[in-house]
């Protein structure tokens, strides 16, 4: 069917996307930066289900590492059809207290990292008969959230990156879209999804529950599929109705 690379695929949403794309028949590159054993577990799970996966360790914010690793992966897997930029970090704090360093680090990973991966993967994607880029944004990038200035800015930036790239690559049939999750139960959101915070949040979500990584993966799987060939430059919200 094709080859997919998912960044930050050892945990959370990225893990569900990697496993889901493998179920759809993609050979999947499972990227991680620190969690090598977690990535190995994802690969083992994919292989146990009869799929194919490679471990692709690199830091998305390290330009030369990105270039080398993507080149090697494309050669190993025999091309690239889908790039899902999911790797992301959140360093919370009110704007007045956010250090330049934490701000920069968040942008480096979440936004610059996605750009560097798009850049390194572009030649292979442009050669693909059905190239796809899916960037994982966030409801926080669309709506803002107190205490998450850098995360919000990086996720909003991904939407601009998505739309500009969608225009650049449209001539080759490569689609570029964002999936914008609401509150999803992962390690990253664990601190936000406890006790009173969680019950307050649930009141704002029409569907009355937080999302699962699989809810987000479903949207990514659709955008990566041949059925989504006429959808580009869009932001697909997976948020239970939190933002409409």
């Amino acid at each position: 069917m094709g080859v997919a690379l998912v960044t930050g695929a050892s945990r959370g949403i990225g893990r569900a996307v990697a496993i889901g794309l493998a179920q759809d028949g993609f050979v999947v590159g499972v990227n991680y930066v620190h969690s090598e054993s977690a990535a190995a577990a994802v690969i083992a799970e994919i292989k146990a289900a009869g799929g194919q996966a490679f471990s692709v360790g690199f830091d998305v914010s390290d330009e030369s590492a990105v270039e080398t690793a993507i080149k090697t992966f494309v050669a190993q897997a025999g091309g690239l059809d889908v790039l899902c930029n999911n790797a992301g970090i959140a360093i919370d704090g009110l704007a007045m207290r956010v250090s330049r360093q934490d701000w920069q680090h968040t942008l480096d990973v979440n936004l610059t990292g996605a750009f560097l991966c798009c850049k390194a993967a572009s030649r292979a994607l442009l050669k693909s008969p059905a190239g796809r880029i899916v960037n994982i944004s966030s409801v926080v990038g669309e709506q803002g959230n107190a205490g998450q200035v850098s995360y919000a800015a990086s996720k909003a930036g991904l939407i601009g990156l998505t739309r500009a790239l969608a225009r650049e690559y449209a001539a080759r049939g490569v689609t570029v879209n964002c999936v914008s999750p609401g509150y999803i139960e992962t390690e990253m959101t664990a601190a936000h999804l406890t006790g009173e915070k969680k019950s307050e949040l649930l009141k704002r979500i029409p569907l009355g529950r937080v999302g699962t990584p699989e809810d987000v993966a479903s949207a990514v799987r659709f955008l990566a599929s041949p059925e989504a060939s006429y959808i580009t430059g869009q932001v697909v919200r997976v948020n239970g109705g939190l933002l409409m």
Partner: peptide
């Protein structure tokens, strides 16, 4: 060649 094709050739 469109602009993308020229860029791919340059690369």
């Amino acid at each position: 060649a469109d602009s993308l094709a020229v860029m791919e050739l340059v690369l």
